[in-house]
Simulated assay, not measured.
Amino acid sequence: MIGIALLGTGRMAHVYGPKIGAHPGLDLVRVYNHRPEGAARAAAMYGGTPSDDLSATLADPAVDAVVIATPTATHLDYIDAAARAGKAIYCEKPLDGTLERTERCRAVLDAHPVPFMLGFNRRFDPENARLRAAVRAGEIGALTFLMSWSREPAPPPLDYVKSSGGYFVDATIHDIDLLCWIAGEWPHEVQAAGSCLFDPGIGALGDVDATMTTLKFPSGALAHVNNSRHCAYGFDQRLEAFGRDGMLQTLNRRDDDLVRWSGRATEARAPLKHFFLERYDESFSAALDAFHDALVAGEAPEPSAEDGHRALGIALACAESVRTGRTIALG
């Protein structure tokens, strides 16, 4: 049994808390928030001992690893403290919103090597994983195109947008990591376009809510991502891989996948899963499974800090492409 300290009690902690508590190989030992009332409320829901003392939390010998589910800007500090304490780390994405601080995260992990996993949960969605396995097994021959549709049902609150790091860092980074993982290579150039079409408040903050991105890989394969902060019919999440010998697709998940035919409608189907919490629920559990299994086997978990660093660099290059109208070469 691996003892876990959950750091944070906000939205993502509410995703991980119940899943840690239900996992047969993980024991939720402590729940940390610098505000004692927040720690107490979360511990009452998920289990574990509430704590507002980070040093005491990390000094607890029953804590083998931490799950960092705090705001992005705090990740570096918690990674530093946990690594110095010799605790394995699972950290919600991204490592940070800036390359400079992301490089500092990597330096900390180099100086204090502990098992580290970054929470790019979409790699662990069963359908995404099956598509990748089929691509890598050569089912469609040489890969030509990868395409990702990732559209949210409604824009987030403006307070969230202000601290999100921009749409590419907040959202497109998921697609970037997923497509690069499927392709097995990193792009050498990126071109992106963005508009604000749904929420003028987002535009007033200097951000966009509709984007299209093209990645070009060294093999010549091309990837396309389109993101939207609004989608009238739900959380639209699809992938397509096109190769010399065929095509693979993942389809949207629904609350009820039964297809109905009647005098009123043909192929009537239930609405799409509403948001990422519902659509990717299984993936968060599978990510914790992978973290647990790597620790038990003494293997390096994936995705790694390097994966996070490279994905962030590409996301920031997308934002630069929108600002400048240029194709951005990647190192």
Rank of each mutant, 00 (worst) to 15 (best):
I314Q: 01
V66H: 06
R254E: 05
A65T: 08
D125G: 02
V296Q: 13
E278A: 13
R132H: 12
I140E: 07
G97K: 13
A129I: 02
S55T: 15
H14C: 08
G38Y: 13
R84F: 01
F291D: 14
A133Q: 14
A241Q: 01
S219M: 01
A171N: 15
S283Y: 03
Y78R: 04
R260S: 08
D27L: 09
A83T: 12
F291L: 12
F217Y: 11
A329F: 02
A221N: 00
R151I: 02
G141C: 09
A43Y: 06
G263R: 08
G47S: 05
C318E: 14
T213H: 07
L54Q: 02
G97S: 14
R136Y: 04
A44H: 04
A39D: 04
G246H: 10
V190D: 03
G313T: 09
D64C: 01
S164V: 11
D125S: 05
K216G: 01
Y90D: 09
A319M: 09
G17S: 06
V63I: 03
G38T: 05
R11I: 10
A305V: 07
T324G: 00
G97Q: 15
A311G: 11
V31G: 01
T266V: 14
V29H: 03
T250D: 08
P187F: 03
V108W: 07
S262R: 00
H274T: 10
P126D: 08
D64S: 01
M212C: 11
L26C: 10
L99A: 13
G8L: 11
H188T: 11
T57P: 03
A154E: 11
N33Y: 05
M1H: 12
D52E: 06
D159R: 12
D293N: 13
A69W: 10
A65G: 08
V296P: 07
V161G: 12
V135D: 04
A286L: 12
A65W: 05
I182Y: 00
G194V: 09
N226Q: 11
F242C: 02
P271E: 09
R260I: 15
H188S: 11
M247P: 00
E278D: 11
N33Q: 06
R151H: 15
N227E: 13
D245L: 10
D52G: 12
N128G: 11
V190T: 03
H309C: 10
T72Y: 04
P71W: 05
E299H: 14
L6E: 07
T172D: 15
P271L: 09
P24N: 09
A83N: 12
L26P: 09
A107D: 15
L251P: 00
S51V: 06
A171T: 13
G141Y: 10
R106E: 15
A81E: 03
E103R: 14
L295I: 05
L312T: 11
D77W: 07
E127C: 03
E100G: 06
